[in-house]
Nucleic acid binder design. Structure first.
Lengths: 336, 336
DNA sequence: TTGTATGCGTTATCAT
DNA sequence: ATGATAACGCATACAA
């Protein structure tokens, strides 16, 4: 059986409340008593029972994180950030993987809600109304999504698209295509809108929306032929994984990247530096997003009177690698 | 404020005990009473307080998972398996990321121990004594590592090495090199030993141990030149990420894969299918390992009298892709 | 400064 | 079959 505060009290010759105080409010107890109690506690390997403490204080010292797929490098990186920041603040983290099924995220959230001080929701595809409901039920922070006044951490998708378009135009590309993610994805809606609007600002540049695709390699493979048929010389993909699918399909078709067509991904997940060619990508601060989400959440739970409207918008930075090149590269000599 | 069993009892016109029973042991309550109570509870949005329940039952309904780095695809996949199996069993999972620092894993484990029914430890590098200590303090299952009588889920590393060597010999390779992971890694010790022993069984085949390397891309990059200098025509890497480093360094050096040298990775993480060339890899059942760990753990907590010695050894399967080819390929014409 | 007493929300024991 | 009551381990208000 585990050692309780009562055991420590008995051995140290004090009352349970003194043991409790010695640990949670050391200043309220005499120095010598405190030292003796703490020494005894340590010697006996005493660890306060979290359940009992939670029952009375109402605080758990835990936070919850819900992601669609922990195997997806995007969410793995966000999770990393959450982990790092939570630990440095002394919080433990529950994590629930919805396995890409938005319909169960609500239930997962409610299950966790009772055991955490707050919840971080990284849920690109859950219906907005579900987010509203959950925000009413528990302390909530959205990551990579914004919905009304729910506290959220987002990235500057519009600026990312702007950088990508600027980069491609500087390389001479004048006909650009966008390979979208799921129609229900919040980020995709933002990026698509930005692509059409910002692309349309240039008289000499045409933009093509190739439609919605699954956010997997298969989605990119499926979009590959459409991209070629569109006449675009450069393609921006919803995310890096879709971009990998494009690279794969282009390779199958004998289309060279970047000589024949340039490809830009989004997210800059760690593996994007390793493909061949390495992927030019709109770099999102994934780990930082997780950290910022924790900071925001702890700020909210720390001060219940804090203004519930809070948004954090993080900067993005295009990372240029081998998958983008000049439009006229095909006309120049190349190895092989 | 949240609705408690007391509130439900008042509304339903019964006692708290009946509310409790209606939810946890429905058979002990009259059908019509039960239905009324359950309907009321649902209507009021009642969710039992986990902390209070834990306090009296001693069970949390949670399990803990400790991994060195959630951003590493290997651990992300294991985590996925843990998630899936835990959820299907109605358990929530705490996850702690030690950020590759084995010295804090013990503390992470102890922090979690109080809030979980059992712990899954995926810790390739923690000292064995730490594992022994933890196993004494809480219900523990090791994944991808074996230590004494601590319940564990492992994969057949030896068989994996055997398949890799067999594959490479079938392709005509007779001088094989092994690029190791960290000296402290349990898996690496297993694989290295198997490599030296199994390779030595063939009169006509030489095996070379290139030493220990960091389990990152940088480790593979660092090993690349040694591999070439060793005269080996095929290289087996500690894991896929190290193999990526080899591919990168070989590309820099103008060495073609698989024409000039063949490369085999280990783990078959999802991204290994996406590189160019795609990576031949000893496929480990990562998701299944996580699931098996949960099964084993729940078996242990379900029956406290269960025999504490339990091991699960999972099969591996070499996945052949583009990074391995015949030894004499260089002599044949090739594109370019 | 320290001890005593109360209660957090639930389950378990014992009456009824 | 149901209700009253104690107990889980701790934190806190209050008394000393």
């Amino acid at each position: 059986m585990a050692v309780s505060a009562r055991d420590v009290a008995r051995v140290a010759g004090v009352s349970v409340s003194t043991v409790s105080r010695a640990l949670s409010r050391p200043d309220d107890v005499a120095a010598h008593t405190r030292d003796r109690v703490l020494a005894t506690a340590r010697g006996m390997g005493y660890r306060p029972n979290a359940a009992a403490r939670t029952l009375i204080t109402g605080r758990t010292g835990n936070i919850g994180l819900i992601v669609p797929d922990i195997e997806n490098p995007f969410f793995a990186s966000v999770t990393k950030g959450v982990q790092l920041q939570a630990r440095s603040a002394g919080y433990a983290v529950f994590i629930a993987d919805s396995d890409e099924d938005p319909s169960i995220e609500r239930e997962l959230a409610r299950n966790l809600a009772k055991q955490v001080d707050g919840l971080i929701l990284c849920s690109p595809r859950a219906p907005g109304e579900v987010l509203d409901d959950l925000a009413r039920e528990c302390t909530l922070v959205l990551v990579n999504r914004r919905r009304g006044d729910i506290p959220s951490v987002t990235v500057d998708n519009r600026e990312g698209v702007r950088q990508a378009i600027g980069h491609l135009r500087a390389l001479g590309h004048r006909r650009l295509a966008y390979v979208g993610g799921p129609a229900t994805s919040w980020s995709n809606r933002e990026r698509l809108a930005a692509f059409l609007e910002l692309g349309g600002e240039h008289e000499d540049t045409e933009v093509v929306d190739l439609g919605f695709f699954q956010p997997y390699v298969s989605g990119g493979v499926a979009a590959g032929d459409l991209a070629l048929a569109s006449g675009a010389t450069a393609v921006l993909a919803y995310n890096d994984v879709v971009a990998f699918g494009l690279l794969e399909r282009f390779r199958q078709r004998g289309v060279r990247v970047p000589d024949d067509v340039s490809v830009v991904g989004t997210d800059d997940i760690p593996v994007s530096a390793l493909t061949s060619p390495a992927l030019t990508s709109v770099g999102l601060p994934l780990v930082s997003s997780g950290r910022a989400g924790v900071d925001m959440l702890l700020g909210l739970v720390g001060d219940p009177a804090a203004v519930p409207v809070h948004h954090h918008h993080l900067a993005v930075q295009l990372v240029v690698r081998g998958s983008t090149g000049p439009r006229d590269a095909a006309a120049r000599p190349h190895p092989g």
